[in-house]
Design a protein around this nucleic acid. Structure first.
Lengths: 194, 194, 194, 194
DNA sequence: CATGAATGAGATTTCATTCAT
DNA sequence: GATGAATGAAATCTCATTCAT
């Protein structure tokens, strides 16, 4: 029994990974269930065995990706380092995820247009939770005197917004690598905070 | 004849304004030709008289909105004020456009997914031109010693990215008005540059 | 304009007649939009130009057939003849419609299973109105002393039920013609009422 | 071995009872094999072990329900009472079955639309047999002088048709209970026969 | 015996696009 | 110039049925 369930769970995750890849390449509307199934060498019908419809599939992608990312972010927050270092790490991590897993993070744009009422609030909640970790780091840094920020929410918006935008112009194999980018971003954004 | 053409041009612009409104509300895929026609109290067929297909219509929207915005931005650049002031004005202007004309600016996200090869290079060129004005302001500021920025392109990316992201969370009538937001953004982003 | 509208209305009616033919032959689930379109030498898409979905199409069938039938029934009720004669005529008319237009009357079975909440109440209302004419004839007959019925609603149920059931076994070209059947039914059902 | 078979037979019957419940609730097309399996806490696959396809399952439902009912009806026919009393009892029994076991009796509507050639003749035969008991009662009543009916088949059609139609409007817990209804029906239908 | 997984055919619906009038 | 009508391709989703384990 347990084995069975594990197998199914693995399959689901496999589907989610492929799905988010396709969705990010083609967009939510552009990615057809056929495309997603093809990538997995499955038939459309099989997808519906695991997820009851396209929105559910997308929603699960969202949950998977974001919960993994949030966990990692939290672990950074709990590290025994200065707030500045935490923020630097968080920035680098977020950029890395947003780019290398562009596939999945792209799902995040315009959720209201994609999710129905059934899911939208949970989706927004999860994003808030994720963003909340950045808030906590900022808050901590302000208290320790490392950061000087009055409008903390705004600052967080700027930080996350600028990073999320990277997907719009980043081209793999281009002049700047992820590492270069995240170094510069960290530097400049920290300059804003301190 | 001239009158005719003028009339037609006016009609085209009218269509473009309505179209961009609808497209931004529903997204490019979500906005059907029917919807757009309905907003204008026209029939689908009529749209095809003015624009040969949906992509062309969207492309023209893009041209219209961006060329207007670029012009205004250039005029800011030409003003006889400090680079800091220029940047502050540019930031406020961009945010205002991105929010109040959200309708049209939203078109900008993910152009490769929307435009075919026929248009994509022109679209990207126009965006580069628009962004180029920000580059010029930064460049000028660096030369005058007002700004201290080594990675100018990156800085511009951060600035534009953070502002474009505002659409993702801004809710009209919320706690913060456009003015508050743009003031804080200008302050924080300038802090980064100076 | 008027001409156009008339043309469209005619087309709609044409569609409804074909549709009800197909639906009655194959049942609501069995009749595909493709089938219906084929019968009319149209494409599926064209149907959706006239009716926004399958249920709407079916609903309009129902409205068309029942309102025509009710009108005729009312005219029988208004004739200047005895209640017995009215009932005899009504019975003959109903049987004729239920058989010759079997196509359309069959729609009537199990409406709750076919219509969504949006339409169901209107459908039931229209049926009640139709049945109501039988009630009025019975009522009149009782008052004039021609009929002796205490449970009028039940009597009407028996009359309509027995007639509606005819579709279940009637085979065109069989031993008994419609005329024979309706004569016997009228005789026996009137025997029950008097 | 025998035990095995008995067990299997019991299981089959159990399935048939559940199946007819679901089928009558949702209609033959509406009831999916999944639904039926779910009601039995089985999986779809298991159903296919007992019945080779959906039609076969339905057919067996039909056989089960009708043969039980016919048996009971025959026993009424064999009772040592007047034909009038037999008919009254038969009417009451039929209505009771048709309502309380609505689940199963509903299957009977429009058999040609549900059964393929393979089964249809057997289905019709069984129905004829069932109806035949009513014929026998009528025949007996006519011979004994209790009934006065020339068109015996028609009379039977009226009787069965009116009763079968009850399902269309009967609502459990409504004003009239089954008992009231069957009393009135018996009274009125007998009035027609005598 | 039974199950989970998968298939494949078909159904409804949507829309950009075309075209005769 | 503009409209109503129609097309056709594609997308989502459903289900009876099969089969390896």
């Amino acid at each position: 029994m347990k084995l069975r369930e594990k197998k199914a769970a693995k399959k689901k995750e496999e589907i989610l990974r492929s799905a988010s890849k396709i969705i990010s390449r083609r967009g939510y509307d552009g990615a057809t269930m056929e495309d997603i199934a093809a990538e997995l060498l499955m038939t459309k019908g099989a997808l519906y065995y695991y997820f009851k419809n396209k929105e559910e599939l997308l929603y699960q992608c969202h949950v998977l990706v974001l919960s993994e990312a949030e966990e990692k972010l939290e672990s950074i927050y709990r590290e025994n380092i200065s707030s500045i270092e935490k923020m630097r790490k968080a920035i680098r991590f977020h950029i890395e995820v947003a780019i290398t897993e562009k596939e999945t993070f792209n799902l995040i744009i315009k959720p209201e247009m994609t999710f129905s009422e059934k899911h939208i609030s949970k989706v927004l909640k999860q994003r808030d939770d994720y963003a909340g970790v950045f808030d906590k780091i900022i808050q901590e840094g302000v208290q320790s005197g490392e950061f000087v920020v009055k409008e903390k929410k705004m600052a967080r918006m700027i930080i996350l917004g600028s990073m999320n935008w990277i997907q719009q112009w980043y081209i793999p194999g281009g002049e700047k690598g992820i590492d270069d980018i995240s170094k510069v971003y960290a530097e400049y954004l920290l300059k804003m905070l301190t």
